[in-house]
């Protein structure tokens, strides 16, 4: 914590009042930033956890889908697979939008599929399973992409807000409080000096009165 003080032009009561007001504003700003930092950090941590588990799941899915495709190839020709993939959906779209999290714009990706003229009875079951597996894999990969971009953006914002919170918490507010303490001590000292001076004056006056 900073032991330094702000430089004040004149140690006056007005300056003390101003400083107290500044500390109040600084503390409110600190609270707003801190609340935002908590929400952003929570979001960031949950995203990191989710993305790690999703990444592990994707690795598993890649292996599983590969196996299913190989199984499918054992009962169907590559031409059949080609036909299957072309009639499965008539349209597959990845909609790229954005959403806002505590003042940070992060991407949002959604996959939309329109069913195609597929007759499941004309294709082997293993091929249908492989298709479903790859559908899930595509969705997960896009979700992971969304998460990882969000992590980068949120991380940047967390660093920025944290720097400001730390500056307020460890530098600005302690310096202001130190200055307030210094001014208060200065005024107390001045008051004590005044009291002593008045006593002395009273004594001198009393002595003069006695002499006269």
């Amino acid at each position: 914590m900073s032991q330094q003080m702000l430089r004040i032009s004149r140690p006056t009561k007005i300056e003390l009042i101003r400083l107290r007001r500044r500390v109040k504003v600084a503390k409110r700003l600190h609270k707003v930033l801190k609340d935002r930092l908590i929400i952003l950090t929570q979001e960031l941590i949950s995203l990191i956890k989710d993305s790690l588990s999703l990444r592990a799941l994707i690795h598993k899915e890649v292996v599983e889908c590969g196996k299913l495709l190989l199984d499918g190839l054992s009962v169907a020709t590559p031409q059949t697979i080609g036909v299957y993939s072309s009639v499965r959906y008539s349209r597959v779209t990845a909609v790229l939008g954005s959403r806002v999290v505590a003042g940070v714009r992060v991407p949002l990706i959604e996959v939309e599929r329109e069913e195609g003229p597929l007759d499941p009875s004309t294709f082997p079951l293993t091929l249908l399973d492989a298709g479903r597996c790859y559908d899930k894999l595509t969705e997960d990969v896009l979700r992971l992409a969304e998460m990882e971009i969000s992590i980068v953006k949120l991380g940047r914002e967390v660093a920025r807000v944290k720097r400001r919170v730390n500056a307020l918490e460890n530098i600005l507010i302690p310096r202001m409080e130190n200055t307030i303490r210094f001014l208060e001590m200065k005024f107390e000292e001045r008051e004590r000096e005044d009291k002593t001076r008045l006593k002395k004056v009273k004594e001198i006056l009393a002595r003069r009165g006695r002499v006269a």
């Binding site: 430089r7 101003r18 504003v25 600084a26 409110r28 700003l29 707003v32």
Partner: peptide, 23 residues
């Protein structure tokens, strides 16, 4: 002692306003 902080009060209030506006 540190450099003069003239107008710090206004600066902090403005920063608080700006931060709320930005969020």
């Amino acid at each position: 002692m540190l450099s003069s902080n003239e107008g710090l009060n206004g600066l902090l209030a403005r920063y608080l306003r700006e931060e709320l506006r930005a969020v």
